[in-house]
Design a protein around this nucleic acid. Structure first.
Lengths: 324, 324
DNA sequence: ATGAAAGCGCTAACAC
DNA sequence: GTGTTAGCGCTTTCAT
C-alpha cells in the first residue's frame, strides 16, 4: 500500500492537481460540488499532504530546533516539555537535541537543524563558543544564556534568587554558609549572577563567602564523593546554597548519610523536584512562563514582527521552603 | 544574505549541478581537481545541502517520531534522552511529542509525524486506542506498551521486578504492604504485570494484597492529598511498593511529613531519582539498554532487516536499596 | 471556477 | 569524467 499523493486524489475526484491543492489550502474559488468531490476522495483514500514537499516549496518547515544540555535533568525536561507543547499548539514541531554541554555536539546539532531548515532555534546549552551561532542567519532565543548581542535572552532573576536563598539561610541562623556552583571558571569570571547574589548578600551581612566548585557535567557518583569529602573536611558548615537542584539533591543525600541536618537551598524548582525533594528548599524559576515567553518571542521573530533583538527578559523567582 | 544553493556552488566552481552533487555524495567518478574546485567553492560559500530537498527526493527523511507522555518525568526524560542520543549517533533526528497520555493529543501527534514523513516511530505513551497505529504503515517500536501484534515491544521485567520489590519489603519485615498503582481499571484488567507480581508474591507468603489506585496523570497536589489521606486512614501500613518512582517520591514525602518511617520501593530507577531520592528503594530498569535496543530494532526495521514483528524483549531489572 | 505548466533544491538515469 | 534532463510531491502564477 503505497503512499497516497495529491495526484491520486485528483484522479479519483476527476479534477486537476491545482483544484485539490486549492481545497486543501482553502484558497481561490471552488464550487461547492467540486469541494465535496475532492473532500470525499481525500477521505476515501485517507489522504494527508506530504509536509516535506510543502516545506520545500514554501521555504518554511515549521520546525524548531531545541538545543538543551540534557532532558534527563528535570529542569530541562520541564522546560523542553513546555516549549514543545506551546510550539505544538501553534503549529510548530520540535527537533530535540541533547548537547550534553559539549561544544562539538552543540556545533554539530546546530549544523543539523540548519540543514533541516528549521525556522528558528531555542538554546539552553551552557557552552562558551556562541560564535558558531553568528553565521546562522535565523531567529534564535536563548534561555538563561548569552549567545550574542542579537539574541534575546529569557531567564529568571538569578541575582535576586541567590539573594533570596542566601538571606533565607541567614534567617535560619546558619553560621557557615557555602555556595556550591556548577559553573566553570570562565563562566564565573564572566558573570555568574547566582554566585554574585550569594557573595553580595554574605558580605552585606558581614559574613565570609565560601564557594565550592562541583561541575554540573561531572559524573554523578564522582560529584557525590567530592561533596561528601568537602562536607567531612568542613564540619562547621551548616548551610548551603546550591546553584541547581540536582546539586542540592546530592548535598542532601550526603548530609543524610552522614547524619548532618543542615539547611539547603537549591535553584530551579522543577515540579518534579519540589514534589520529590521536600527536604531541600529551592528557588523556583517560572518555567512555564519562561517557555511561553521564549516561544512568543521566537514566533514573533519568525513572523518578522519582533525587533528588540538585544532584549533580556528577566522573570521573578520564588522561594519554596522545605517541607520536612 | 540568501541561502546558498547547489547551483551557486556549481556556478562558482564552473561545473554542473550533477558534479557538485557527486562530490557531495561521493558517488561516481570525479577528477581530483574538480573535486577540489568544488570543495573550495563549498567552503567559500559556506554551503550545506538542504536536507528537506534531499528527503523529498529520496523518500527518506531520517526523522523519527518519539511519542512519550511527558519528558518532565525523569524516567521518560532519561529514555528520550538516550533514544535521541543513540538515534543522532546513527544519523537520525528526533521529533519529540509529549502526549500527556491524552488520546487526542497522541492521535494528532501521530498524524503530524506521519505527515512529516518520519521513517519510524518509538512510542511510550500509555494510551488505550492503539488502533490508530494500524493504518500507519511504517516501522514502530513500543516501549513497555502493547500497540498491536505487529509492533515489537521493549520493556523491563515488570513481573520479576514487582516480585523483587515485594520480597524485599517482606524481608524487611513489613507486616502490611500496600501496592500503589498508577494504572487505570482497564490496564489493570488487561495485564498489569507489576501489580500481578506484587499480588502473587504476597499470596505466596501468605499475605493479603492491598492496592491503592493513584493515577499517574492526576495533578500532583491532588495525588499527594489522596496518598496522605490513605496513609492516615491506614496507620497499620508499614511498607509500600509504588508502580513508579514519582509516586514513590510522593509517598515518601507524605511519610516524612507525618513522621512515618516506612519502607518504600518504587519502580524506574532513572539516574536522577536514584541520586535524589535516596530515601526510597527502587527497581531500576536498564534504561540505556532499553533505548539502545529499541533503536537497534527500529533502525533494522527501517532497513528492512528486521522480521520478528511480534517479538517482546524483556530486560532484567535490579533492586536498588535505599541509601538513608 | 478550473487546469496547464513551471519550479522549490536536490539526485540519478542516461547521454557524451 | 562530466553535463543534460526528468522528477520527488506540492503550490502557484497565468491562462481559459
Amino acid at each position: 500500500m503505497e503512499k497516497v499523493k495529491l495526484g491520486d486524489v485528483a484522479k479519483k475526484a476527476g479534477v486537476s492537481l491545482t483544484t485539490v491543492s486549492r481545497v486543501l489550502n482553502n484558497r481561490g474559488y471552488i464550487s461547492k460540488e467540486t469541494r465535496k468531490k475532492v473532500n470525499d476522495a481525500m477521505e476515501e483514500l485517507n489522504y494527508f499532504p506530504n509536509e516535506i514537499a510543502r516545506s520545500l516549496f514554501g521555504n518554511k518547515t515549521n520546525f524548531v530546533g531545541l538545543l538543551f544540555p540534557n532532558v534527563t535533568n528535570p529542569f530541562y525536561g520541564e522546560i523542553v516539555s513546555e516549549l514543545e507543547s506551546t510550539l505544538a499548539s501553534r503549529g510548530y514541531k520540535s527537533l530535540i537535541c541533547n548537547t550534553y554541554n559539549n561544544e562539538e555536539k552543540e556545533s554539530n546539532y546546530l549544523k543539523m537543524v540548519l540543514a533541516n531548515q528549521v525556522d528558528g532555534i531555542i538554546v539552553g546549552s551552557r557552552n562558551r563558543p556562541s560564535s558558531i551561532y553568528q553565521s546562522a542567519n535565523l531567529p534564535i532565543v536563548a534561555i538563561d544564556r548569552f549567545v550574542s548581542s542579537k539574541v534575546p535572552i529569557v531567564r529568571s532573576d538569578n541575582y535576586g534568587g541567590a539573594c533570596l536563598a542566601t538571606e533565607y539561610l541567614i534567617e535560619k541562623e546558619c553560621k557557615n554558609i557555602v555556595h556550591f556552583t556548577g559553573s566553570s571558571e570562565e563562566e564565573i569570571k564572566k558573570c555568574d549572577l547566582r554566585m554574585q547574589g550569594y557573595i553580595d548578600t554574605m558580605l552585606k551581612y558581614g559574613k565570609t563567602p565560601r564557594v565550592m566548585k562541583a561541575s554540573f557535567d561531572e559524573d554523578e557518583v564522582y560529584q557525590r564523593c567530592k561533596v561528601a569529602d568537602y562536607l567531612s573536611a568542613s564540619p562547621e558548615i551548616d548551610g548551603a546554597f546550591a546553584a541547581g537542584d540536582t546539586l542540592a539533591g546530592i548535598i542532601y543525600a550526603c548530609c543524610k548519610q552522614k547524619g548532618i541536618d543542615m539547611e539547603i537551598v537549591g535553584y530551579d524548582g522543577a515540579s518534579m523536584f519540589t514534589g520529590l525533594c521536600g527536604g531541600v528548599s529551592t528557588i523556583r524559576q517560572p518555567i512555564k512562563k519562561m517557555a511561553r515567553l521564549a516561544t512568543d518571542i521566537l514566533l514573533d521573530a519568525i513572523a518578522g514582527t519582533y525587533q528588540e533583538y538585544d532584549s533580556e527578559h528577566v522573570l521573578p523567582v520564588e522561594l519554596i521552603k522545605r517541607s520536612y
